[in-house]
Simulated scan of single mutants.
Amino acid sequence: MRLVTNTFRETGVRIRNRRDEDLDVCVGLLRAVHEQAGYPINWPEDPRGWLTPASRLGCWVAESDGRVAGHVVLTAVGDRAEVERLFVDPAVTRKGIGRRLLDHCVTTAAELGRELSLEVVDNRGAAVHLYRRAGWTETTRTPIDWGGEQATELIRFSPPVST
């Protein structure tokens, strides 16, 4: 797991490794996101376990004003990496926290020499907008049957090409 902390002074957001003692706060934030924005579509039976997939390359939180305000996991998919479990406290959205977490994953995947991607269901308008604003490119759409009437496709994105 990557043991680095990035501090972003211009926004007061600090990305750090998630610690075990952060899990209860992260589950609470995930519950708020689920209730307000419908992510994840299906509430996990074991939210703590869902936030800690076995294939993880790293788990990070964003701190803002000294409290956990966002979460992300980078997982291994073969020799590639995938951004997962990205969410931000609904009380502090639109402050660049999701973008900082996303950028952290891009940097980490590059350092690990892994091709990166992410998937999002088609009813996550704010997430899709974030990815596109951050320069990510939609590569495929796959029909799904587990999203109910809320979502019918899974959209795959690839990150911006670094120069």
Rank of each mutant, 00 (worst) to 15 (best):
M1D: 13
T5V: 15
T5R: 14
N6R: 11
V13W: 00
I15N: 04
R16G: 10
N17W: 04
R19F: 11
D22V: 00
L29I: 15
R31Y: 01
V33N: 02
H34P: 08
H34W: 09
Q36A: 14
Q36L: 14
G38S: 09
G38R: 05
Y39H: 08
Y39F: 15
I41D: 06
W43K: 08
W43C: 06
P44I: 04
P44D: 06
R48C: 09
W50D: 11
W50Y: 15
W50F: 14
L51A: 06
T52M: 12
P53D: 10
P53K: 10
W60Q: 01
W60C: 00
V61N: 01
A62Y: 01
A62L: 04
E63S: 05
E63G: 07
S64G: 11
S64H: 13
S64F: 11
S64W: 12
R67L: 05
H71M: 06
H71D: 02
V73N: 03
A76F: 06
V77D: 11
G78P: 05
D79G: 02
D79S: 11
A81Y: 02
E84K: 15
E84S: 11
V88C: 06
V88I: 11
P90H: 13
A91W: 09
K95Y: 06
R99L: 14
L101F: 09
V106M: 08
T107E: 12
T107Y: 03
G113P: 00
E115I: 02
E115M: 03
L116Q: 01
S117D: 08
V121D: 00
D122T: 02
A127I: 05
Y131Q: 03
R133T: 14
G135Q: 10
E138K: 06
T139R: 15
I144L: 05
G148A: 08
E149T: 14
R156I: 05
F157R: 07
P160R: 15
P160I: 13
S162Y: 13
S162N: 14
